[in-house]
């Protein structure tokens, strides 16, 4: 590979830095300002403090919203991983109706969330299901299912068919083959899918607003707080959510990107 001329390398670096600064500097503002107090709408830069975090910890509304978010997230993950894996297995087994099924799974993910949310809202009212955390979990599951399904299906399709044949050939039953060969080979894809599903559920706002009952999740709570006016603990909250999301992304990448295969020895 020929090296780029020095000047254009510098130019490229400058452009890249500029884009990165423009894209990500807004994120830095709340993080930095979360460590300072705000008086009369202005940040007081003179004394760094953790006061906003203390205020956040004492805000019972926020803590309740956080708990709700976690409950919804965990339930959504369980539901979507189990059903997403089963649906991927069904699709992979080449039985009838698979194309239509896949279309239906992807639809809620691709539609504008407000449409999905409204459709769900109307559906729940028609069947007489009270709006509650259950409806939120159902809404989130419908939304994130496509991600888990796709992740697991891709792993299934990259798995050599002869693995299953070899298992049968060695005397295993269908059940043994599933538990001892298929599932272990899908597990990292399932974990990766679960983390992505949790991250999506964590910040889902539009569908949640439409189908929730009296309880609000963290993003919904945040939304409400913003409308009432800017409060310093929002900065702390944003900083925390940001950290958490970055952590999830790193984890998901670890499980979804194939591990470095040990170099072949000859």
């Amino acid at each position: 590979m020929t090296a780029l001329p020095r000047l254009s390398t510098v130019f490229l670096a400058a452009i890249t830095t500029l884009v990165a600064v423009l894209l990500y500097s807004p994120l830095a503002v709340p993080i930095v300002s979360s460590f300072f107090t705000i008086a009369h709408g202005n940040v007081d830069w003179s004394s760094p403090t953790l006061a906003t975090y203390v205020a956040l910890a004492e805000n019972h509304d926020i803590l309740a919203a956080l708990r709700t978010t976690l409950i919804v997230g965990v339930c959504t993950v369980i539901l979507s991983v189990v059903s997403g894996t089963l649906l991927a297995l069904y699709y992979h087994s080449r039985r009838s109706g698979r194309t239509l099924l896949q279309f239906i799974i992807f639809l809620p993910f691709l539609m504008p969330p407000i449409i999905s949310g409204l459709a769900l809202l109307i559906f729940f009212r028609e069947i007489g299901l009270e709006r509650s955390l259950l409806t939120v979990v159902i809404g989130h599951t419908v939304f994130v299912l496509a991600i888990v399904y796709r992740t697991v299906l891709m792993r299934l399709q990259s798995m050599s068919r002869t693995l299953v044949e070899a298992s049968y050939d060695l005397g295993a039953t269908g059940w043994q083959t599933f538990w001892r060969i298929v599932l272990p080979n899908l597990s990292s894809a399932m974990v990766g899918g679960a983390i992505l599903a949790f991250a999506l559920s964590f910040d889902e706002t539009m569908i949640t607003i439409l189908v929730t009952g009296t309880q609000s999740t963290l993003p919904v709570r945040l939304w409400a707080m913003m409308r009432l006016g800017f409060s310093p603990d929002i900065n702390a909250l944003v900083a925390l959510i940001l950290m958490f999301t970055v952590l999830l992304c790193v984890l998901a990448a670890r499980f979804l990107i194939p591990r470095q295969v040990a170099t072949e020895r000859t």
Partner: peptide, 12 residues
């Protein structure tokens, strides 16, 4: 028992 062309060893 079969020895497969791609060996089909269980990677896990």
């Amino acid at each position: 028992n079969t020895v497969f062309q791609d060996y089909a060893l269980f990677p896990h």
